[in-house]
Amino acid sequence: MRELSFSEAIREAMAEEMRRDPTVFLMGEDVGVFNGVWGVSQGMYDEFGGERVRDTPISEISIIGNALGAAMTGMRPVAEIMFSDFLMCAGDQIANQVAKARFMSGGKANVPLTIRVTTGAPGSAGAQHSQSSESWFLNIPGVKIVVPSTPADAKGLLKTALRGEDPVLFFEHKMLYASKGPVPEDPDFMVPFGKAAVVREGKDVTIIALSIMLPKALEAAEELAKEGIQAEVIDPRTLVPFDKDTLIQSVAKTGRVVIAHEAHKRGGPGSEIAAVLAEEAVEYLDGPILRVAAKNVPLPYSPDLENYVLPGKQDILAAVRSFKIHSK
């Protein structure tokens, strides 16, 4: 299979859907002539023109609100917010308007709206350009939350978002953009929401890894294998809807679980996942549910400080080793 980078896979999903459906369009800050600050929409302005690849003012309320109004009246917008930190600028539109429109209208409002955002720490970007904000929205019923980790999933999940009828928050980790992987060429290749991927099978411990933590978890699993520990690595891929069954099945097998994400530990996605496992899988557990996550401080600028705050492969290894799987 041919290989694409994560950002090429996202671009291919958008461009294919725009060729297929004239109601799909992209809007956001510098998505057009500039090709997106991360280059994700490279070439799309040239192919589709400024009507369908729309540069907007630096107005996040307006971007999301306009996209919502367009979605309600028959378009299928992709609204790009340059950094997930800026989603807060559009907080009302996302939390009170987009998420609730269908429910409040008795199911009559159709909101086929995809909000693409970059997330995570790209290195020394400081506290306002580095956050992983997906869990902020977990407490808001009405949006779907997608957190892809591989190029193939990025393309397939984005296609599902673009062909769906619900608002989707699509979190693209900046440090994944250059990562490469096989991506199916089938223009109808789609990855369903609510279906976790068992990326590596194992019997001793379950590592649930989100976004950028997936490649780190896979590296950790390689090292653990050398120590005789077989780690199962699972990527939930979507937080809403959430595939708890695959996780519970894995935990039933391994009895031990580590949840890894780059978001802050307190109230991060791991808090919710751990709660679900505690409620529904506690009888399988042979130890505590451990979370590997960013420390509960704003992300610092200095690499020395930032690396200390962010979770990495070593933290996953330390968490797994703390189970003392072979010392029993």
Partner: peptide, 18 residues
């Protein structure tokens, strides 16, 4: 939400124009 509908109306206008 006070003013919440205004960007939505602009979005509907964008949709009509497109």
């Amino acid at each position: 939400i006070v003013a919440g509908g205004i960007p939505i109306a602009v979005g509907a206008a964008l949709s009509f124009a497109m």
